[in-house]
Design a protein around this nucleic acid. Structure first.
Lengths: 216, 216
DNA sequence: CCAAAAGTGTTGAAACTACACCCATGG
DNA sequence: CCATGGGTGTAGTTTCAACACTTTTGG
């Protein structure tokens, strides 16, 4: 049995001011499902590894070539009636909104709020769900947040992100205490600007410190 | 680009008396790599879902049709020079040794100790490593041990398993205290037999209690 | 001086670590 | 009675949860 293998990407970003977690969708221009919203994707070409196909898709849609990207799952279904069946390997990517190129208008690409996703064609709705539930697990052990937050962020940005993801309120004092214990959160001598209240101190994720901390 | 998709299975079992974690390997009878040790596997047929191919492989090798089975990862490589390229989706399975059928001798199937695996062809060595590292992660949150232990087991069986997996000694009193807190470990009025020392009390994993506990 | 979000400490409860001896069985 | 592994409790330390007020800034 011969397959074509499509790579679908669940590309996620977080908009700190509005506290919205968003996924990138595009309007499909081919049949089947022309005119429907789908995840960005593409077919595996020649002998390229899956990850490379995913990187191509990611770069095409966001301009990024170094974002966090992980395999999610291989899906066999798609339409089992077709002669040359299409399997699909999904990836998920976490990107900083500030680093992305403007969206491709001809494709009608859009960031949509996770709480308000349009109907997606194929099994793409399932893939988004799977990606979120994977991230909820992984984030317990891996510092995934920092891929989504801007380079410089406040401790409350981190908290707000967790609150959006898990849809529950966290205790501000206890949350900060935990973050302050992390040796890889580097406090900067910089503060939020243009806010009409006390400006928050900014922090940065320190990759080197994390590597040391993590290897213990 | 057309692919054949092979499913490879990392089938793991634990032999409680010898405290060995083992993986099932078979001697390959086709070229390339005829005569080498490989993981059991097979090609995806017609329109069957990947999981079903994996179930077929698992049943063929062990006689089991209801063991724990999860997708591990999709691997693109294999030999990129081939015209019709072979991709592979690996699964891992955890089985109770007592439930498995005798091994297929014509295939020269063998349980080999993880600490002493022969050279495996293709990227199968990598797949075994990936499976183990996945299990080490998952077992922190999921009750995977109970798929590997016999139906009735002692608390020290559980401890020994963790010690083999993580290759480090654990404190017996503290470990037992933790297990005793789990509402889904059901103590039985039964004891080890034919041992020349104080026989250990046996326990059983209670699926219903776990479902309740887990949903909280 | 008002509004709005940032920032800060303490206390009681629970969980975790370290650690040494007696028990039940078979031979 | 010996050897072997099964089984138990306590004390000190650390982590976690709950909780309310003051600070800084812009308007």
């Amino acid at each position: 049995m011969n397959f074509h293998i499509a790579i679908d990407c669940v590309i996620l970003a977080y908009e700190a001011p509005s506290q919205k977690l968003m996924v990138l969708v595009i309007k499909r221009d081919k049949e089947p499902f022309a005119g429907n919203w789908v995840l960005p994707g593409g077919f595996v070409k020649n002998t390229e590894p899956f990850q490379q196909t995913a990187l191509r898709v990611l770069e095409k849609e966001t301009g990024l070539n170094n974002a966090f990207l992980q395999q999610l799952h291989a899906y066999s279904l798609t339409d089992p009636s077709e002669e040359n069946r299409i399997a699909s390997v999904a990836y998920y990517s976490l990107v900083k909104l500030e680093d992305t190129a403007p969206l491709n208008q001809s494709q009608q690409a859009r960031w949509v709020d996770l709480k308000n996703i349009p109907q997606l064609a194929f099994d793409h709705g399932q893939k988004v769900e799977d990606a979120i539930s994977r991230i909820k697990k992984e984030i317990q052990h891996e510092p995934l947040v920092y891929h989504l937050l801007p380079e410089k962020f406040s401790l409350n940005n981190v908290q707000s992100f967790y609150e959006s993801l898990f849809q529950k309120k966290l205790d501000n004092r206890n949350f900060r205490k935990q973050l302050k214990k992390l040796p890889y959160l580097e406090p900067l001598a910089e503060y939020e600007q243009d806010v009409s209240h006390r400006p928050a101190q900014l922090y940065r994720f320190n990759q080197e410190q994390y590597a040391i901390f993590h290897s213990l």
